[in-house]
Design a binder for these strands. Structure first.
Lengths: 350, 350
DNA sequence: CTGAAAGCGCTTACAG
DNA sequence: CTGAAAGCGCTTACAG
């Protein structure tokens, strides 16, 4: 027995009366083992409950079967749903996940996190951080200094040469606004997320395009910059109505801010959707029980997580079979499409 | 250079003109290195960007500097907040986190997860799964088959001989109910979580104790068993009022169900808190912007995660210095206390 | 204060 | 189909 009393391949080999690498062959499902030897070893493994030391295996194979996942704090709705998809698909494909949460999207910890991942010999990295401020700069750093495949998921998708899975955020803005126009809105206000967030800017661009080119002329209303919180949505409605008392609809860039809008509308005695239609983004579970139930735009975040794992896995396999170089994946960006979930906070199409 | 072009301790040693284990001493901050040797090696390490292979280090040291974290899906409010605390404190203490999400609290995957963790040589395990149905049985399995320290956090705390960090769930029920009584409620209904969840039963017990022994006689109202979802809270209020039309307060076992209650109250034309006081549990961020803002009971979940990491780390250190055995930690349970957050959905103390 | 030797538990060529 | 040898990149005693 080895240190800490764990079983090693040698104990199995002795018990089976074979050499260690015959056991190794069985553990790795190699074809070149005699059927009865194979069965005998399998039985012994099951009996004594042997499982190979992945640290040792990793050392010889040059791969750890671990995926590094870097995500922003789970307080944001998006990342935690992406993480669920990542976890599921990673388990499916036999990877463990090394989780690294960062606290602010523009953190300074990136080099430390990368070197930690690097030291642990992760086979690949999934980078699930929204693009905020100038943090896109990292990605170059990332591509150059990590000798393993990296896939971006979420906010940074499509903005670098790295392969990525993203959501079409401009379409989010377009779909929400088109829905409001269809319901008769002609003065559509916007509560956007922080301007340094790419996702916020894209959603805003979708709103802008759609209001500008509507058949009813320019239907764009006032703008307020929130910070994703419910409180900022609440403040936002007050400001927006002060700027344009005739505003008849609001597109809020996430559900939490939309909730703040609903709250403020109650306080102000504005009926939703009678006086004011409201649309959010995210489709958080509580949304269908807001008062009134919130119309929102759903993003397929779990799918994005699943796809991200498949993409790194592809790259890792290609790399292992020596047919390619670390970040020589096709720099493919997959854009997933959002869809509107119509509930009662917006007037239905006329 | 080694495979995959990574730098090894040998490259550093050659560049510095010393042996490998002198470099090793520097990497591990051993005191017995000549000051100038130390500095020279440090400089070279920084220059060429060497970082040690943790797989190899783990193999020799018999520890991985990885903590296995087993948690239930992040859709539940509690676990994702616990995870945030865990991540933060693990980073602080130099551990990586190997995340394993399970989908249902009574999953059958436990043996697979444990053997995966075991194979990866985790130094310790944090088990953040609520106690549901008979899944407490695992914990024995867990304690016996894992040769490393385990700490329970959340629902299973205090129910086994394993060390654990928990929240006083009975106090949650008591505090919520006392608050309602203080506001003048005399017929307090309960929307409980699923009966097979220990946390739900404890909160119910707190409610039951408090209503039964109130100075105003038995103030317990009707009970409805929800499933933690907003929809079940909504259905719950209808059922409760059907059973007892004079009910003047509801304690909902989480905020989501409380939201459903608020929603149903609007639909039924019951004023909150005028006709009906409502209290939830969790203090989710949106709660302060419900209509009306929700009174709730806060649980210090982040703290629980931090404490859990400290507890395993203690045990790991003790084990490493060979002064103890794997699960010979004091089987200490730390109970953290909840507190009421008073907002507008409940009548203030008279 | 520093180094040569051995070993952690596996897998990868190389023989046979 | 199976095994003896060497090595992955570190660290742990043991010398000096």
């Amino acid at each position: 027995m080895s240190q800490r009393g764990r079983l090693t391949i040698r104990e199995v080999a002795e018990a089976a009366g074979v050499s260690a690498q015959t056991v190794s062959r069985v553990m790795n499902n190699r074809p070149d083992v005699a059927p009865d030897t194979y069965e005998r070893i399998q039985r012994i493994i099951a009996e004594i409950g042997y499982s190979p030391n992945m640290l040792a295996r990793g050392l010889t194979q040059g791969r750890s079967h671990v995926l590094g996942v870097v995500a922003i704090g789970l307080d944001y709705f998006g990342p935690s749903h992406v993480l669920t998809g990542i976890d599921q698909q990673a388990a499916e494909l036999g990877y463990a996940i090394s989780l690294n949460l960062i606290h602010r999207p523009e953190t300074g910890d990136v080099p430390e996190i990368l070197s930690g991942l690097f030291a642990r010999q992760v086979d690949g990295v999934i980078w699930a951080i929204p693009q905020v401020g100038s943090n896109l700069d990292w990605s170059h750093h990332l591509a150059q200094h990590l000798p393993v495949p990296v896939v971006l998921v979420g906010g940074m998708a499509g903005q670098t040469s790295l392969p990525s899975i993203g959501i079409d955020n401009r379409a989010i803005g377009r779909l929400a606004t088109e829905h409001l126009l269809a319901g008769g809105a002609r003065n559509i206000g916007l509560i956007t997320g922080p301007q340094n967030w790419w996702e916020a800017r894209e959603r805003e661009a979708g709103w802008r395009e759609t209001t500008a080119s509507s058949p009813f002329g320019d239907t764009s209303g006032p703008i307020f910059e929130g910070d994703w919180t419910t409180a900022s949505g609440e403040e936002g409605l007050h400001r927006l109505l002060a700027a344009s008392p005739t505003m008849d609809a609001v597109f809020a860039s996430n559900d939490q801010m939309a909730l703040g809008v609903l709250h403020a509308a109650h306080t102000l005695g504005r009926r939703v959707p009678g006086d004011l239609s409201v649309v959010g983004v995210d489709n958080m579970p509580e949304g269908s029980h807001f008062w009134p139930p919130l119309t929102t735009v759903h993003q397929p975040l779990g799918d994005a997580g699943v796809l991200a794992v498949e993409r790194v896995d592809d790259a890792i396999r290609r790399l292992t079979s020596r047919r390619s170089f670390p970040n020589a994946m096709e720099p493919l960006t997959t854009q997933l499409q959002p869809k509107v979930i119509v509930r009662e906070s917006s007037r239905p199409a006329i």
